[in-house]
Amino acid sequence: MTLTITTELLAQVPLFHDMKPSELEQLAQISQLMHFQPGEVILRQGGRSQNLWVVLEGTCEVVRHGSDGRDVILATVEPYANFGEMSFFHPAPHSASVRAKTHVHLLRLGRNEYEDLIRRNCLAAYKLAYNAVQILAQRLRRMDQWVAELLEQQEDEQSVCEWSQFRQTLFSKWNL
């Protein structure tokens, strides 16, 4: 099973949004196409590799190994989405593992090669960073919303406290 990297294919990747074919080629040159079997681990929780991954075909899953020994699947990553970007831009151990759910074809971009592009003032590298910022900002916004909802929910729980419910039952609904 082979997959040919074309500029048409890469143009669909959000991380490569708004790039000219020549810029896409520049990035393709420093990337490797990788293939994984179902169940193979691509990135290990706690590991410190600095690669940016883009799914071109197949599905991956993000798995967190709990301290109780159980695995929790946090998300699945579908074609054209990326992972590994947090460690890529900010070195830290991976917070979860990513493994192949199906046969997957991935594009791997290494940190060193990327830094070379930056040093050469390559516009493609800066565009990639700009796109990554947008993707991360989206994710941050979703997180903010989620936190806000969580807080609201807590407030709701406080306002339906048993005692005020009891009071309402006896003084409003059943004040006979």
Binding site: W163, F166, R167, T169, L170, F171, W174, N175, L176
Partner: peptide
């Protein structure tokens, strides 16, 4: 219901 209601209201009014 009347009995429970009166006891409940007295409990609430007494400060709960």
């Amino acid at each position: 219901i009347i009995g429970i209601g009166r006891v409940g209201r007295a409990t609430i009014l007494g400060g709960g």
